[in-house]
Amino acid sequence: MALLTIKDLSLGYDSRVIVENLNFAVNAGDYLCIIGENGSGKSTLMKTLLGLQEQIGGEIIPGDGLQKNEIGYLPQQNLVQKDFPASVKEIVISGCQARCGLRPFYTKSEKQMAKDNMAKMGITDLANRCYRELSGGQQQRVLLARALCATQKVLLLDEPVSGLDPRVTIEMYSLIENLNREGITVIMISHDIAAAVKYASHILHIGDSIFYGTKDEYLESDAGKFFLMQQKGGEK
């Protein structure tokens, strides 16, 4: 059984449909890239998968015993957080919150988990720094560490590299690649098709035409061929 099965899903706001007839499945260990134009509904799809936005029709079926509190999420940059006084440590451990239920305080093992994830993301020395004073790349690592505290299974990332410079972008991609190698399923939004083709195992393209398939199938498809042609054009 797949981790997530999406059947005839249509999404949008207030019954205004943005995307319809989505069908795809995400298996454990997949690296799914969602690509498409700006405004094509990528973020909306992710929010619908997370239950933040009500779907208009269709079904989202979780499998493999996936629980709501076993999902990690890295949102698209959010304005509210801009002037928030919070240290890196406080933010990372807040990823454990969903597991707490009504328990008021974090356990030792949760604190250790936060430390481990900070180490994994290479931000241990930033632990006491203020989030809003960090660079864009550092902030994304903090949010990724928080997402890792929330899950061992699935990560949903909404444009994790937007606004980062090329070097930091590559670092971020390789961090995510390593996490996927360790067995975490990754669902990532990107408008960088080159990166999608390089790292993903599966590709979902939404927009005027919807495509879902493995990376190789994508490269065989019309959209993929068009992309390859552009790449070659660029290299000339």
Partner: peptide
Amino acid sequence: FILFYNKIFAVTFDEDFAKATGT
């Protein structure tokens, strides 16, 4: 406030994340 301090932080800092992960 003390009992719910951590939850108040999570919900204040990033409500979407809190909701998405099951808080």
